[in-house]
Nucleic acid binder design. Structure first.
Length: 553
DNA sequence: TCGGCTTACACATTTGAATTGG
DNA sequence: ACCAATTCAAATGTGTAAGCCG
């Protein structure tokens, strides 16, 4: 029996990588300079470089950069994902939150064994359409509703060493999806009948290289076959059957060899054996059985995987796998929805200054800052703008942790400053707040419940340009410190964490404002990952007037 | 009227405490 | 007293279907 013990969601012993794993590599020409030093070939060097730099800073940076871009990620059960993808993956979203199936599990290689990384997932709109299931296929049904506030799911093991991540599968199976706009549990909020694309981010989060340092690097991995359409009830009977056949929890709906027990039970209750929708679907299916399968999600495969450097000197686009190319009549997809991105920070003078460096308790940003979030960004910019996704929802990680004081006693990171807020928090609502404040008339978001603290209602995060004017130094925050404390609680000797908390009972400590640190991590990821992905990003940056501050120091 | 959403339900799995035996 | 294996009940995950809602 597979159980989440000890290593939390990294629960499964990884079997030899084979066809079940599709791999995405971050290696590219940018490594040419260091090609003679494979990251894993010299773990000692890399580890030393990260932990206690023996040489010039430039060497340390080079070693760190080399590692991050050599990371390879393989999707577990790729074949199963493909099965779903070919049928048009649907993911149930409920008010209480629903897990994804297939669950998102990856095998990571190429990390520096001694360097600490944060692994997190976000789910972004794959396009700006709303869909409906009609005539046994997904069709565009209009323009997408305003995107939900972007939330991240930080793997509860984060931060952990590369050795830890590479030891076994990294499972995000506890990630939950919800359609509750006011979800208090940190689940990822999605709109029903919309198409989404999960993305995996790997962030180097060493104690000495926290966000904000010049060496911060991360990469983003996207597997097109993991795209899906969110639904509140299954539309495609094929998906239902695939779920039942493959999800252990749905075994009760599997038919036996000689009879369908479920049907028999239902019949005994004089219930209709087959629902109207199922009947309709089956009728349509039979009528259309001769037709080739259509899957809207294939459209996502039109997306390109790209890799680029922040300085723009290296940009590599590669078509998705041939077998992933669209086979359907799905509308053209925006290539921005799917990408592979790996970023490095080369410029030593460049300094990432995160919004969180300003206390959440600070006064609202200046009027000059607000204009960056005055209107809901269009789809492109939602994808690209920090204002679209800048929340962190480390639900699992946070739910494992106790209050800040509790953490302090067992964290073992006494050298780190105590967090102003526990990571045991609600998902940040800061971007959402700012966003909705500016667009309350058009965005169908509801007001926050009263239990949101004043902190969560803090105004818009400062702009990048403003941030960059902040001097480095003690204003540097450490996502590592935040996550590590959660982590220690989870895996430490006192980790006999009440199960009730993990299972979602809203413990008091969960109802806390978001950590500005984690928010900043999110801000960082989005601002970075979208910084150069598309033309619109340039427009965005132009609008921000902050690019120079970032790229030119 | 209809499509989408919520909810209760039954069943299966997971989890951890309690129990048992060495 | 200690430890490992087993048992068991509660919690959780799952799809279904009825009913609600706009």
């Amino acid at each position: 029996m597979l159980q989440d013990k000890g290593l939390s969601e990294s629960e499964e012993a990884f079997r030899a990588p084979g066809p079940a794993l599709g791999e995405v590599s971050a290696t590219n020409a940018a490594n040419a300079a260091n090609a003679s030093e494979p990251a894993l070939a010299a773990p000692g060097l890399s580890g030393a470089a990260i932990g206690s730099p023996p040489g010039p800073v430039a060497d340390v940076a080079a070693a760190a950069e080399q590692t991050i871009e050599n990371i390879k990620v393989g999707l577990h059960e790729k074949e199963l994902w493909k099965k779903f993808h070919e049928a048009g993956t649907e993911m149930i979203i409920t008010k209480a939150g629903r897990r994804m199936f297939p669950s998102y599990k990856v095998k990571v290689t190429g990390m520096n064994p001694k360097t600490k990384y944060i692994l997190l997932i976000d789910i972004v709109p794959a396009d700006d359409h709303r869909y409906k299931f009609c005539d046994n296929k997904w069709m565009v049904a209009g323009k997408a509703e305003p995107a939900m506030p972007g939330r991240l799911y930080v793997h509860p093991d984060s931060p952990a060493t590369g050795a830890h991540w590479m030891r076994q599968l990294v499972s995000f199976q506890k990630l939950k999806l919800t359609n509750n706009h006011l979800d208090p549990f940190g689940h990822i909020i999605l709109n029903s009948m919309h198409k989404y694309q999960p993305r995996l981010h790997i962030v180097k989060a060493d104690e000495n290289n926290a966000f904000g340092s010049k060496n911060t690097a991360f990469c983003t991995h996207v597997f097109p076959e993991t795209s899906f359409i969110s639904v509140t009830s299954y539309q495609n009977h094929k998906i239902t059957q695939l779920k039942i056949e493959n999800n252990p929890f749905a075994k009760g709906f599997r038919g036996s060899d000689d009879s369908d027990l479920r049907v028999a039970r239902l019949q005994s209750k004089e219930y209709p054996v087959i629902s109207k929708s199922i009947m309709r679907q089956r009728l349509v299916s039979s009528q259309l059985s001769a037709k080739p399968d259509v899957s809207p999600l294939h459209g996502a495969h039109q997306a390109l995987q790209h890799y680029q450097y922040e300085n723009g000197a290296h940009m590599q686009f590669a078509a998705a796998e041939p077998q992933d190319l669209p086979l359907n009549t799905f509308p053209p997809q925006r290539d921005s929805s799917l990408f592979y991105h790996c970023l490095k920070r080369r410029d030593g003078a460049r300094h990432l200054d995160f919004p969180c460096k300003r206390s959440y308790l600070e006064a609202p940003s200046s009027v000059g800052d607000d204009h960056y979030f005055r209107s809901p960004p269009p789809y492109d910019q939602q994808m690209l703008s920090p204002s679209y996704c800048s929340e962190v929802a480390p639900r699992e990680a946070c739910m494992y942790s106790g209050s800040g004081s509790e953490i302090a006693g067992v964290s073992g990171v006494d050298d780190l400053p105590p967090p102003p807020l526990s990571c045991n928090m609600w998902t940040s609502v800061s971007p959402y707040t700012s966003y909705s404040v500016q667009t309350m008339e058009t965005v169908p978001y509801q007001p926050f419940p009263t239990h949101f603290t004043a902190t969560t209602m803090m105004p818009r995060l400062p702009t990048i340009s403003t941030q960059s004017s902040q001097p480095p130094g003690n204003t540097h925050f450490s996502v590592y410190s935040q996550l590590s404390q959660c982590q220690v609680r989870e895996r430490g000797p006192t980790a006999s964490f009440p199960r009730e908390r993990e299972r979602g009972l809203p413990a008091v400590c969960e109802r806390k404002p978001p950590s500005p640190h984690l928010n900043a991590a999110n801000e960082f990821l989005y601002s970075q990952s979208f910084s150069l992905t598309r033309e619109s990003s340039l427009q965005y940056h132009s609008g921000m007037g902050a690019v120079e501050n970032w790229t030119d120091g």
